[in-house]
């Protein structure tokens, strides 16, 4: 029962961004490459920012005592 949302991999994104920035910082790359890196970088940051900003937390609770793990939306019972 795998239900992972399609969220960007922040770890990889941050790593890739760091590499892009480093490459660009070292200079000595063609304008075409630089533009390519730039576009990729902006794409990555936009994607990550978008998913961070638009995220809505999904909270579920496990119900049932058998080996069948049933999940249903969790509402704070104390409220």
């Amino acid at each position: 029962m795998v239900r992972k949302k399609s969220v960007p991999n922040f770890e990889k994104s941050l790593e890739e961004l760091e590499k892009l920035v480093e490459t660009m910082e070292n200079g000595d790359i063609s304008l075409e490459d630089s533009l390519k890196y730039f576009e990729r970088g902006i794409e990555l940051t936009r994607l990550c920012q978008k998913s961070l900003k638009e995220a809505e937390q999904k909270v579920e609770i496990l119900v049932g005592q058998d080996q069948q793990n049933n999940l249903k939306p969790f509402t704070d019972l104390t409220e």
């Binding site: 961004l17 910082e25 730039f38 902006i42 990555l44 940051t45 920012q49 961070l52």
Partner: peptide, 24 residues
């Protein structure tokens, strides 16, 4: 910290723009 993360991505964006400008 999502806020810090957003900020980090923003910093990357700024940095990328700076670098692109510099390259040009």
């Amino acid at each position: 910290d999502g806020g810090a993360l957003l900020n980090q991505f923003e910093q990357y964006q700024i940095r990328l723009m700076e670098l692109q400008d510099r390259c040009i």
